[in-house]
Design a protein around this nucleic acid. Structure first.
Length: 470
DNA sequence: ATGTTC
């Protein structure tokens, strides 16, 4: 795409006021004046600024004019005085600030129920590991920035011993068939039905994101995202796939909706904060009414981002499995940053899980440990007090900054060696010691999920920070 | 989490 992209600075230079009009003007120019020169765009924007009333009925520029004419801010929506009671799992691991965040969220006028998972920690708006059910309203920051961030596990017919005897082939697949780093794209990529979805044409904010989405399909991004080979141990003889208990080679991935989802999240978070002004301590919990155009649009865009994240995992797995000449025996996958329409207490609610695994009765999911600690294949017990949810991992016990400052490269190398794990990329901020003990976290949620099997990582690839790698 | 954004 070569559409004209104005910057906030340029607009302020023209005399535009601080505020939402900046974003609106950038969007309008990108969408409706793609072929204009910067000078032409500035001339148009200056005319609107000079006399917004003259443009208020203009089908394109009217949106900018409306923002220039608006002066009064919407009224601040008060939080309820009396919070709804909610369950906390593993309260002994959860910091006071995290609980305060859910205490605020549960006082939203649209909040119906909530829960905190044992890996919970502070986030923007809703805490990570937080679950919140609302009545007919969706909170963009209740889903999170990485919409549809999810896990995918493939169980393969390869012999366990091949992880050692064929180690170089497994490593080659990780190096050649995955791509990590912020902004990383495949130069030549496969087609996928998700890229044909009509939402890319029908929803304005998605129109400019199709090219990026096409390039980033099947990439993993950065942060805590990974692709890894390891050993799946099936423990439950009554498993859904009739797999014999024992060991299998598995492929596990963790990633989300990449730049496309991040842009969707950013757009609707800004919009929600304009339309729904809350007291300062709850400002990031701004919600969209599901009966409004904005709410409906977010719902469609969020679902598309979720399907896109799923397609990314499937492409990664398809390429890795083909590279190893393997056959897929079973697959488990689940979003852990998303919102769903679910019935609880006889009423349809919008259930936000921000870093929480869906755990309805009989639902399968994956809860990862760390690059050396096992992950768990789980089956939900449908516990109502957790709103059918469980943790989405072990949870950090150290911030990234603290991990980098307090864990040495030698300690991390030894930890990997002791556990027989090979790491490609990765940094000290993702060291095993930066995470809580997954076994402790699992025992804090034994009422929420049962264990079907385990996954022991053996060969891990992560982003190594800095610019995109090849 | 994201090429680090009004």
């Amino acid at each position: 795409m070569s559409e004209l992209k104005m910057t906030g600075k340029q607009l302020l230079g023209l005399g535009y006021p601080q505020g939402p009009v900046i974003r609106v003007a950038i969007d309008v120019i990108a969408e409706h004046y793609p072929a204009a020169t910067p000078e032409e765009a500035e001339a148009v924007l200056s005319s609107v600024l000079k006399d917004p009333v003259a443009y208020q009925h203009d089908p394109v520029l009217g949106a900018i004019a409306a923002h220039l004419m608006v002066e009064e801010k919407p009224e601040v929506i008060a939080l309820r005085d009396t919070p709804v009671d909610y369950a906390i799992f593993g309260a002994e691991f959860i910091e006071e600030g995290t609980i305060k965040q859910l205490n605020n969220a549960i006082r939203l006028p649209v909040a119906v129920a909530g829960a905190l998972m044992p890996d919970a920690h502070q986030g923007y708006g809703l805490p990570i590991g937080g679950v919140l059910a609302t009545d007919n309203a969706v909170i963009p920051y209740g889903v999170g920035v990485d919409i549809g961030c999810r896990m995918c596990l493939s169980i393969l017919d390869l012999p366990e011993a091949s992880l050692e005897t064929q180690a170089s082939n497994y490593q080659k697949a990780l190096k050649n068939k995955t791509k990590f780093g912020a902004g990383a794209e495949w130069k030549r990529n496969d087609a996928d039905p998700v890229l044909e979805r009509s939402e890319f044409r029908e929803i304005p904010v998605l129109r400019n994101l199709l090219d990026k989405a096409a390039g980033q399909l099947g990439t993993s991004g950065s942060g805590n995202h990974f692709v890894e080979w390891g050993i799946v141990t099936i423990l439950d003889a009554n498993n859904e796939w009739n797999l014999a208990p024992g060991n299998y080679v598995g492929l596990l991935s963790h990633s989300g909706s990449r730049g496309m989802g991040a842009q969707v999240a950013g757009h609707y978070t800004r919009l929600a904060k304009e339309l729904c002004v809350l007291p300062k301590e709850a400002q990031h919990l701004a919600y969209l009414d599901m009966n409004t155009e904005a709410g409906q649009e977010y719902w469609l865009a969020m679902n598309l981002a979720g399907d896109y994240a799923s397609a990314c995992h499937h492409l990664i797995h398809q390429r890795m499995i083909a590279e190893m000449g393997a056959t897929l025996l079973a697959r488990v996958e689940n979003h852990h940053n998303f919102a769903w329409k679910e019935i609880h207490h006889g009423k349809e609610l919008i259930v936000h899980r921000k870093g929480a695994t869906p755990a309805g009765k009989g639902m399968l999911g994956i809860i990862p440990g760390s690059m050396t600690a096992p992950g768990f294949i789980v089956r939900g017990k449908g516990e109502e007090s957790s709103l059918h949810s469980a943790s989405h991992g072990a949870g950090r016990q150290m911030s990234r900054t603290k991990a980098i400052a307090s864990i040495t490269a030698e300690e991390m190398r030894k930890m990997l060696q002791d556990n027989g794990v090979t790491l490609i990329g990765g940094g000290l901020d993702e060291a095993p010691g930066a995470y809580k003990d997954i076994n402790t976290v699992m025992s804090a949620q034994s009422d929420l999920v049962e264990t079907v099997g385990r996954f022991q990582p053996k060969m891990v690839r992560m982003a190594d920070g800095g610019p995109a790698e090849d």
